[in-house]
Design a protein around this nucleic acid. Structure first.
Length: 530
RNA sequence: GGGCCGUUAGCUCAAUUGGUAGAGCUGCGGACUUUUAAUCCGUAGGUUCUGGGUUCGAGCCCCAGGCGGCCCA
């Protein structure tokens, strides 16, 4: 940076904010500045024109990217302070504002521009020949394009049509945009919205609202857990073994340790170590990575809440997650009945339905199915329903698939489905009265799986048997099977108190509360390079 | 992994049977002191995703690939 003394604002030609270039006092144009002749002919016309304007301004000693502007109010503040004014009012109050130019309406000697700020609030700027002078007005007309950030200072007034405006006595470029903004009147293609989220955020205030809602939800979750005496912890994302869920991991490499590492698929095994160590109530909100496909409800990286509580069970933690979700809904929408993107309402209030998996499946099949029903009998149902499933599936997987098809796919209201086949729940405690059943629930909201909860398996001997079985599956080619984590087993061998645990997708919670797709709730979803 | 659909100007989209690639907005030039997607006059803007092929002629047909979407597994 040039080590110049900041000069006081100078009085110069009225209207044009020369003070900006004086304050910056950059002796020469930056080294990156190219002569006009070298502006590439290959650039689209509109970019070439804007680049030429930038250089014209620099050549005239006007800074197109000033370091600081004497802004006094946000657009929202001006709006808030002057609501409900009659048309053609002069307030006498002077303000200095900045905003991105979204629309321009020039009528010769009077120019209008709609300025927009990041929070979506808008304010009109008016520049008249009388007030700013001929030079400033013609500079406005020749230098300002849609998408530029501008600075305008002047009196707060309302126009004859009643539009709240800043009636400029001077203006300045705040940041010149070189790329033309896509038209604001047509919806941007979904791919462009995702690939260039910044453009989406500029054009569609709703995009920004979604980001803010997400922040409010995460904050509400943290508040809910802190109020209940939970401790927030951060456990490893880089893991030497992958476990805690059935999923394919991403593999990465540590040069220093000269070994492969996994991006975590779940924090579960570390949070349980915390409980072993006496951190009785812990939670974590962080990212998980699963090396699987992405669609309207799956993303390779996704945010997850997990919490573990000593002395809790899958009965008590179901009540708690319901309350936590309701508190999040309250925080973000002010009600337990949320309004979704399509305008419909979704009721999260009160108690939620609970189904038992085997009972509800039996009801749907018209024939009793229990944990003792042999896989062959289940396969007959699968064939009768013409479901195409892997013939290697055993009892547990068949029950879950049948249930999803016959019951899960039809759930709309928030529903806990509980008591899963033990076989497919390797980290879950066996049901206290039914040996082949696990004390596990899944929470379905708007028809998709939002979260899952357990009475955790804490017997180190049984846990070892289960993980050894998983490890054998892994060696025989199941790349979703967990690896044998000796350190985790060692921790359990020190004694883990009876505990309940819950996992819930944050992105999916947003989907549930807003009705948006997962790629709308994630600010920058993974996409292939263009 | 399989099937289907899409990919054209800065943006959103047209283009008949294979016959000169268009519109609106944006841009550029001009007019206009109360506009609201301002209006009016004039005007520019294209590697039709890429590479092959068929044809007198390809945005369109064929083959291969890229990217995206939807459905299925």
């Amino acid at each position: 940076m040039p080590d110049t003394v900041v000069a006081p604002p100078q009085e110069e030609a009225p209207g044009v904010l020369r003070t900006i270039s004086a304050v910056n006092d950059t002796p020469q144009p930056p080294e990156s500045t190219e002569p006009t002749a070298s502006i590439s002919d290959e650039l689209p016309e509109q970019m070439r024109v804007r680049k030429e304007k930038r250089e014209r301004m620099l050549a005239a000693g006007i800074e197109p990217y000033p370091v600081e502007l004497p802004r006094t109010h946000s657009l929202a503040q001006v709006r808030a302070a002057h609501s409900g004014l009659a048309a053609d009012t002069k307030t006498g109050e002077k303000v200095a504002v900045t905003g991105r130019v979204m629309f321009i309406r020039n009528t010769g000697k009077l120019c209008f521009a709609t300025l927009r700020e990041g929070d979506g609030s808008e304010l009109q700027a008016m520049l008249s020949l009388d007030a700013v002078g001929a030079d400033a007005l013609s500079a406005w007309k020749s230098d300002v394009d849609l998408g530029d950030h501008v600075f305008v200072s002047g009196e707060v007034i309302t126009s004859r049509r009643g539009e709240l405006s800043v009636f400029a006595d001077e203006w300045a470029m705040a940041a010149k945009a070189l790329r033309p903004l896509p038209v604001a009147h047509k919806e941007l293609a979904e791919e462009t919205r995702i690939r260039q989220r910044y453009v989406d955020l500029i054009l569609r205030p709703r995009a920004g609202e979604t980001v803010r809602k997400r922040a409010e939800v995460v904050r509400a979750l943290r508040d809910s857990f802190h109020r209940r005496g939970f401790l927030e912890v951060e456990t490893p994302m880089l893991q030497t073994l992958h476990g805690g869920a059935a999923a394919r991991p991403f593999v990465t490499r540590s040069n220093a340790f000269d070994m492969d590492l996994y991006l975590r698929i779940a924090p579960e095994l570390f949070l349980k170590r915390c409980v072993v160590g006496g951190l009785d109530k812990v939670f974590e909100i962080n990212r998980n990575f699963r090396n699987e496909g992405s669609d309207s409800s799956h993303s390779p990286e996704f945010a997850m809440l997990e919490f573990y509580e000593a002395w809790a069970t899958y009965d008590t933690n179901a009540v708690m997650i319901r309350e936590v979700i309701q508190e999040a809904a309250q925080a973000v929408t002010g009600s337990h009945v949320v309004t979704l993107a399509d305008g419909s309402e979704y009721d999260l209030s009160g108690d939620w339905t609970t189904l038992r998996m085997y009972e509800s499946l039996s009801g749907a099949l018209g024939e009793e199915v229990t944990w003792e029903t042999p896989a062959e009998a289940l396969r007959e149902h699968v064939d009768r329903l013409d479901l195409k499933l892997d013939p290697a599936y055993g009892h547990g997987k068949l029950v879950e698939e049948l249930w999803e098809h016959l019951v899960g796919d039809h759930l709309v209201a928030p529903t806990f489905v509980r008591d899963f086949p033990l076989e497919t729940s390797p980290l879950t405690r066996q049901h206290r009265s039914e040996p082949g059943v696990a004390e596990k629930w899944d929470l379905y909201v708007r028809g998709f799986e939002l979260g899952t909860g357990y009475s955790e398996l804490v017997d180190p001997v049984i846990e070892r048997e289960r993980l050894e079985a998983q490890s054998r599956l892994g060696k025989s080619g199941d790349d979703e099977a967990m690896q044998l984590d000796e350190d985790f087993l060692r921790a359990l061998e020190y004694g883990m108190p009876p505990s309940g645990g819950v996992g819930m997708g944050i992105d999916r919670l947003l989907m549930a509360l807003t009705g948006l797709g997962i790629r709308e709730t994630i600010l920058f979803p993974l996409t292939r390079p263009e």
